[in-house]
Amino acid sequence: MNLRRRYERKQTAAALLFLAPALSVLAAFFVVPVAAAFLMSFTDFDIYGLGDLSTVRFIGFRNYLRILETPLFWKALSNTFYFVVIGAPLSVGVSLVVALMVNARMARFKGLFRTIYFLPVVTSLVAVAIVWRYLYHPAHGLLNHALGWLGIGPVDWLGDPNLAMPAIIFLAVWKNFGYNMLIFIAGLSNIPDDLYEAARMDGASGWRQFVDITLPMLTPTTVFVVMLTLIGYFQLFAEPYVMTQGGPLNATLSVVLMMYEQGFRWWNMGYAAAIAFILFAIILFFTLLQMFIQRRVEA
């Protein structure tokens, strides 16, 4: 008994030593800042607070109330939802279609195609946003030149408030579809072949096989991919920062870009912290929704 107790104590001591570096880093630079941000969102921390902490006062929910009364925040929120609601399904849809094509039995050079499709995922977002900014140029951009062949006149993609966000969505889909494609390919290869064999014996068409076998078997993967994409897309920042600075007429201002500008350009840190927590609340909601749906799907 005594020996066993000593063994357990030794195990605990070793485990604590192994955990100490990672957990102290996470505690100091993750847990503490999250808690601090929460407290900060209830203060009037601004540029004076930056110089002298004693000027900072608790102001209750006033930051949150002010944010909800700011038309610009609603603009940023609706822009972000626009990006998420159109961009994420489009992104996932393209990923699924491409995954089905690459995974088709008769497809050749699968590895090569997969690599080509995946490459944009690893590139730096800032670099490709700059490339696309030039591709979208109204006079010299390749895109308008190509559209010219089809008889479509020059379009000011990033200068038109109605088109700037679709242009950013298009860039995001181009950059990201390879990632979800890989997850879909993995999901597809997990579907047992004999299901398709049996369907073929019953004379089911390719379309019927897709609707009756592929889609249902892929549902857990799809739920996972959709939520992963939603959560990532809510954090839209670098594309508008580099391509449009949130313009034209704030048409591409995102929640994170607004938080960045309030916090790090105007030093309204209490106000910015409240914006960050509203974003967190939205992401949390969708994460919980995913867990709920996943449980339903798997049950």
Partner: peptide, 19 residues
């Protein structure tokens, strides 16, 4: 620890900068 993955990194950045 795993539940911490829900928190977007942007939330930590303001206090982290002050730290």
């Amino acid at each position: 620890l795993l539940s911490g993955m829900v928190v977007p990194a942007q939330v930590t950045m303001l206090p982290l900068f002050l730290m």
